[in-house]
Amino acid sequence: MSFGNLTGKVAVVTGAAQGMGKAIALGLAQRGADIAICDIKKDELEIACAELKNATGKKVYMQKVDISNEAQVNQFVSDVERQLGKIDILVNNAAIHPLHAIEEISSDEWDKVFAVNIKAHFFFCKAVIPGMRKRKFGRIISISSEAGKNGGTVAAVHYAATKGAVLSFVRNLAQQVGADGITVNAIAPGRIETAMTATATPEQTQKFLDKSIIKRLGSPADIAYAVCYLASEEASFVTAETMAVNGGTLRD
Rank of each mutant, 00 (worst) to 15 (best):
I214Q: 05
G15Q: 02
P189V: 14
S107K: 10
G15M: 07
L52T: 03
D210R: 05
A224H: 05
A188N: 13
K211Q: 12
V80P: 01
L99A: 14
G247T: 15
V177S: 02
K58T: 07
H97P: 08
I40Q: 02
G178C: 06
E104D: 12
V10K: 10
A174T: 00
A174D: 01
G190I: 05
G8S: 05
A55L: 13
T249L: 12
E109D: 12
Q204N: 08
E70L: 08
L167T: 02
V65H: 02
T194Q: 11
S219T: 14
N5D: 15
T162N: 01
L52C: 03
A155N: 14
A25W: 04
E70Y: 04
K149H: 14
S145E: 06
Q75T: 08
D43P: 02
D88F: 06
R31G: 09
T56D: 10
V238W: 13
V12H: 04
K207S: 15
C228H: 08
S145Y: 09
I37K: 05
T201P: 05
V227N: 00
A224W: 06
A50Q: 14
S212D: 09
T56G: 07
G218F: 08
Y229E: 06
Q18M: 13
L84V: 09
A127D: 04
V60T: 06
H97L: 08
K149A: 11
V177L: 01
F169C: 04
E193L: 10
K22N: 14
R191M: 15
V184D: 00
A23Q: 09
I141F: 00
H100I: 10
W110P: 01
Y229Q: 04
T249P: 13
P98G: 04
T242I: 00
I192W: 03
I40A: 02
L90T: 08
A23L: 09
L84M: 06
G85C: 12
S2Q: 15
D180Y: 12
Q75R: 11
G131F: 10
R135L: 12
M20L: 09
E104M: 05
V13K: 08
A156V: 00
K112Y: 10
Q30D: 10
E193G: 10
I67G: 03
A156R: 03
G248C: 08
S236C: 14
R133K: 15
G218R: 08
T194F: 13
I96E: 00
V77W: 02
I89V: 13
P98T: 00
T201K: 04
E233V: 04
D34Q: 07
F137P: 08
V10R: 12
S107C: 09
A95Q: 01
D210Q: 11
K9Q: 09
E241Q: 15
T239V: 11
I118R: 05
L52S: 02
S168K: 11
D222C: 05
F169G: 01
N150P: 03
L250N: 15
